[in-house]
């Protein structure tokens, strides 16, 4: 066990943890956050994605210790004062979900994309969503939602 300091959603907190424990389980158990989900535990599906220093990163393999000193932001933090983030709004308006299990990964990847490339083209959008598995086949809506979010920003 080790004292681990994590900065999650703007707040720094200390936790007594097995330093090897991947961040995903720490987020779900210690922080009681539900957005990031287990899908594969192998960096293959993106269900566990969070924003790490504004990049979309999986959390199911890398230890919580690895995330010390990094700025971690989860899906729960995207809407502020009851106001949805533009990407959340676009996802809702496009009704971009079937079962919704992949939604966290898709949404986080989309937010990271727009933070890094404000005007991505369709290929860049697909590239950004490529790492996230959606078995329901909702991809067309995710792509459309990202395009709508960009259009709305203009």
């Amino acid at each position: 066990m080790k004292k681990i300091t994590l900065k999650v959603n703007g707040k720094k907190t200390k936790h007594e943890l097995d330093p090897e424990e991947p961040l995903l389980y720490v987020l779900r158990e210690e922080f009681k956050l539900s957005g990031a989900k287990y899908g594969c535990g192998l960096h293959q599906c993106g269900a566990c994605m969070v924003l790490v220093d504004d990049q979309a990163e999986p959390t199911c393999m890398n230890s919580c210790e690895y995330f010390e000193g990094k700025d971690i932001e989860t899906i729960e933090h995207l809407s502020q004062n009851n106001k949805l983030h533009a990407v959340q709004k676009a996802f809702f308006e496009a009704q971009a979900a079937q079962c919704g299990y992949c939604l966290n990964g898709m949404l986080i990847s989309a937010v990271a994309l727009l933070r890094n490339i404000p005007q991505p083209n369709r290929l860049q959008i697909k590239d950004a969503l490529q790492q996230v598995i959606c078995r329901c086949g909702t991809h067309v809506r995710f792509i459309r939602a990202v395009e709508n979010a960009i259009a709305q920003k203009e």
């Binding site: 989900k37 959340q88 919704g100 939604l103």
Partner: peptide
Amino acid sequence: IPRADISKMIKGEPHFIHDLR
């Protein structure tokens, strides 16, 4: 009519059996 459950999902709120604590 839009699905109400999608408004929970986009905020990462507990929704799935996986989220039951």
